[in-house]
Nucleic acid binder design. Structure first.
Ligand SMILES: [Mn+2]
Ligand SMILES: [Mn+2]
Ligand SMILES: [Zn+2]
Ligand SMILES: [Zn+2]
Lengths: 141, 141
DNA sequence: TAATAAAATGTAATTGTTACAAATTAAAAA
DNA sequence: TTTTTAATTTGTAACAATTACATTTTATTA
């Protein structure tokens, strides 16, 4: 799933040209799957692609989001973070470190799905339901 | 609940000095309870307090958040929105209009509370659990 | 291999927010 | 009351993240 072939295919499927920059950005997104910022991706990808422009990273992430192969996450720190879209999952927002960790919980998903199948919300048609757990990661000794 | 006396009291209780700016910002927060931006609050409050500085609005909102009487909401548009803290509630994020609406659902709250009483998350201690419903407000004819 | 539209680049502009020094003011003390 | 003083407000400049835009380069198609 991390290899160039498959990424290239995914790009083509989305109607995008295959470029070294796009492949590298996608690889970086997959590499640190803890929701990197554009800046973090820029630093990472720059190692492989020296002349890389920041703008390209922003553009690329933007295109990925528009095509639905990545996801933008707004954070309290005022920086956007990005996430490869794969299975549905929720997010743990750490108050201390500002990290955003993935949280997978199919049981919970089912619970929510069932709940909102019955319960309709006034004039709102939900497309995505996501839990937003804010808290602290416990010190592990 | 919207009157000056009570707001002044709330400020004092939080260990804050009572100033016209703070009262007005709190009133504005209560007035449009659809999560105004700092800019929207600035425009509103400026009508009553002509010389008002943008910085004051940012400072004030910041102080409110630190004291726990307001809440900061990061949005996908890259602007922060603010919310008076009252009862626990969730948020509906509108894809079309970028609006954020409140969603109260005690039944759901109970469901989630019960669920996370049993289910513990790895090394994470949740402090706040909030549902993040992204979708569209339906056209009402 | 040539043509062409899409993508990447560099730079400047913009937006939202924060830093900081100086002036003002609310609250406490006298 | 007046005085004192720390907290708050203000104005301006700085900043960080992101976007706009003109130019150059490149991936794809013919
Ligand atoms: Mn994620
Ligand atoms: Mn910004
Ligand atoms: Zn943490
Ligand atoms: Zn709210």
């Amino acid at each position: 799933m991390h290899n160039i072939q498959e990424i290239a295919e995914k790009l083509t499927q989305s109607g995008l040209k295959v470029t070294p920059q796009r492949i590298a950005v996608m690889q970086a997104l997959m590499k640190f799957h803890h929701h990197p910022t554009a800046e973090e991706i820029f630093r990472e990808v720059s190692q492989n692609i020296p002349g890389l422009s920041q703008t390209t990273v922003y553009n690329t992430l933007d295109v990925f989001v528009k095509k639905g192969i990545a996801q933008r996450i707004a954070t309290d720190a005022g920086v956007m973070r990005y996430d490869v879209i794969a299975e549905a999952h929720h997010h743990l927002y750490c108050l201390g470190t500002a990290r955003v960790e993935d949280y997978f919980d199919p049981e919970l998903d089912k619970l929510l799905r069932d709940y909102f199948e019955k319960k309709k919300i006034n004039g709102f048609r939900p497309i995505d339901i996501k839990l937003h757990l804010t808290g602290e990661f416990e010190e592990q000794k």
